[in-house]
Design a protein around this nucleic acid. Sequence first.
DNA 1: GATGCTCATGGAAACGATTCCATCATGGTT
DNA 2: AACCATGATGGAATCGTTTCCATGAGCATC
Lengths: 328, 328
Amino acid sequence: MSIVQRRTTIKDVAEAAGVGVATVSRVLSGGSASPETRERVLAAAARLDYRPSALGRNLRQQRTGGIGLLVPDITDSFYARLTDGVLSCARSYGEPVTIGVTGDDPEREAELIGTLIEQSMDRVIAVPSGDGEMWAPALRAGLNVVFADRKVRADVPGVVADDRAGVGIAVEYLAGLGHRKIAFLARYGQSQRVAAFTDTLTSLGVPVDPELVVHARASRDSAYATAAGLLQSRPDLTAVLTGGNILGEAMVLAARELGVRIPRDVSLIMFDDVPWAELCSPPLTVIAQPAQDVGYRAAELVLRQGRRPRTVTLPTELIVRASCGPRR
Amino acid sequence: MSIVQRRTTIKDVAEAAGVGVATVSRVLSGGSASPETRERVLAAAARLDYRPSALGRNLRQQRTGGIGLLVPDITDSFYARLTDGVLSCARSYGEPVTIGVTGDDPEREAELIGTLIEQSMDRVIAVPSGDGEMWAPALRAGLNVVFADRKVRADVPGVVADDRAGVGIAVEYLAGLGHRKIAFLARYGQSQRVAAFTDTLTSLGVPVDPELVVHARASRDSAYATAAGLLQSRPDLTAVLTGGNILGEAMVLAARELGVRIPRDVSLIMFDDVPWAELCSPPLTVIAQPAQDVGYRAAELVLRQGRRPRTVTLPTELIVRASCGPRR
DNA sequence: GATGCTCATGGAAACGATTCCATCATGGTT
DNA sequence: AACCATGATGGAATCGTTTCCATGAGCATC
């Protein structure tokens, strides 16, 4: 019962078919061979249930098939959906995906890059933390990298959601409801979204109050603390925009805890549409991002070689539910 | 700039240190060597930034390090947290994790097992779909498998939550509130939980109505359709237990759509505690499962070899919020 | 001084695939 | 009949590592 049988190798198939190993390899990888030989080899391979070893092939070809995927946090619905998109595309190419979570920590990210290089992974999709400087050696080593969700280096192709447009529409919507004191609860590293936020405010003639832009670290705890701190220190604000679903969750929780009613006391718009946004009380108005598509397109980009660095921007959409009201 | 430098190999290090490759290998993997040689080799390796190729090693050693992980759906918060647990444990061992989603489809699962075998993965954690028969060849091939969340084969060690106890406490709680017509909205394959459900009912002297146990497929669509169908066909029910968070989400949505008020019209308990359960209106009473721990323990089990098949059962907990009330 | 033991060391085989290259048969052309 | 082009085929090299085994040096013992 615990007798482990040796793996069937190409040599076994060659022997069974009465041909050389080179011929087997050619037949199986679509090279030229006479019809009868082809048939004999195929029959032998099927009979022995032969599966070529990816190890042998990869070593010879000097490249590991497969994709490395680095995300900050797999329990965050956004990255889970992004991952799902990557997996979905990779599956259609038959490529395995190796995943790592960085926790938004550049040091851990560098460590994971090292592991990927050891595995001879030559294709990586990453949501980079920090400024992406630790990618320089990997790029020099010929690694094929695509960034997802965040664009931090010009020399690496990327797939991002159009957060500039999303933030713009959301802020205009809030301003249209009469709000002037609008806060932005951001995660560190969301400079793009913050910039879009202040730009839109100034273009609408609303003065920018730097104290209304606050930053949290990636964890739920930090998000909650920052949200609560914002609500307490600035009771005059009337609307909040959060830079992600974890931050939105924290804001709803903090508001409830502090007796701040949504949308009566403050209006809330959350970046990223998640299934529970509709179940929330009140249902949350959100900026939807095509998380799955971001992952899928990134995988396409990294699998289809030979493109030069380019950035793909995917559309965002404001979905109005019930978490925003007129200025009180 | 686009000059790709060749990978530094053990041969380069050997040359730089003026020793043979065998010595380098020995030094780097902790074998015996004279102190001065050791130092020379270490210095050369550091200077050249040498990283041993996992490919070469794995081929020689006939085993791929790393863990394969097969889950039904990575966007399901439960499996995302389970995955996080696996990754967390694997990281402390420095092992990469290759992930695949089965969509709860045995065929796709079999396909993914094939991919893992091609990669010479010898350690796999899986949430099996179906009865796990497709694992037989893999087990014969010496694959080291651990099942998580579901136990379907006696010859494979597993880590599961104590759903029997969880369902028991939940049903007792509902019965204590006076409910007699309690429905169970399950996913196909949750026979364990269904059995616990009916067992508990009979032990409480509540007659079991087979029509009140309904099954949905794994998708959100199927979950919603089944939930809505249940509410419409059985307006006499007063409480519902759902077998997972996707099903709970669907039930809340369907109830809202059909004007069924929770907990006024029907009480609801959901299996699995998720962050949004607290944000929901009303906040949901749930059976919490240690999803992360399930993954972590499974990874421990698969990484620490040499244990004989055994099942680890982790505790569940009823968390009372506001989705249950007395029988109307 | 010869023998035996320990220890460091390096050459070479092995892992399983792909691929270069030489060989050989076949068939068509001169 | 001699020659060349074409195509199928298999042997052998190769990828980077680990590990077996032989070699040789150093040292102690008889």
